[in-house]
């Protein structure tokens, strides 16, 4: 599209991949993200169903192709799609929802880490107050890690996705590494 070369949140050309003990931390730079907020008095479900955009209930994540979504606030969701095909995710979603929703591109507001380990509970209990072992798969919540407001999506006991503020990507990764070394 343009001649400008992207830089990752960690200041590199390629996504970072770190292994600490049994934990793998993979930075994801291939996720496009946008917020979808219902305009007052609009029900987004019909348009969402038509466009295949999952808008799950509170504290839930729902995956799909190409769109996945999770609840972030009353009448507001974050919707993910592959960056390669949906870099202009806001435009796609505006086309789907029209005047019923306020759409805002969020792709570069966040750094995305996918964490994997046989069991992530020992790591997460050193990082945040989410009852990672107690919640079900598909649980999505905002929480605080290393003083940073993050979104956490549990895919399974051994897999989760973390959205952290992009400008603090290095601090967040450092906290993840230190906790993984400490706990796992």
């Amino acid at each position: 599209m343009a001649s400008l070369q992207a830089m990752t949140a960690l200041g590199a050309r390629e996504a970072a991949m770190v292994t600490v003990g049994s934990v793998t931390i993979a930075e994801r730079v291939d996720v496009a993200l946008a917020s979808v907020a219902a305009r007052r008095g609009h029900d987004l479900q019909p348009a969402a169903n038509a466009a295949g955009v999952p808008l799950p209930g509170p504290a839930r994540y729902q995956s799909g192709t190409p769109y996945s979504g999770f609840w972030v606030a009353p009448d507001m969701w974050f919707v993910e799609a592959p960056f390669a095909t949906h870099e202009l995710i806001a435009d796609h979603l505006k086309a789907a929802f029209g005047a019923a929703a306020s759409i805002t591109e969020q792709t570069d507001a966040w750094v995305v880490f996918d964490l994997a380990a046989p069991d992530l509970a020992p790591l997460m209990e050193r990082l945040c107050n989410v009852d990672f072992a107690g919640v079900s798969d598909g649980h999505a919540t905002r929480t605080v890690i290393e003083h940073l407001g993050c979104y956490l999506v549990r895919q399974s006991r051994g897999n989760l996705r973390l959205y952290g503020p992009r400008s603090s990507a290095q601090s967040l990764l450092h906290a993840l590494e230190a906790a993984a070394l400490s706990a796992c």
């Binding site: 907020a37 805002t104 591109e105 792709t107 570069d108 507001a109």
Partner: peptide, 9 residues
């Protein structure tokens, strides 16, 4: 509707 875009741009 409000959302922060400080870090997005």
């Amino acid at each position: 509707q409000l959302i922060s875009t400080t870090e997005a741009w």
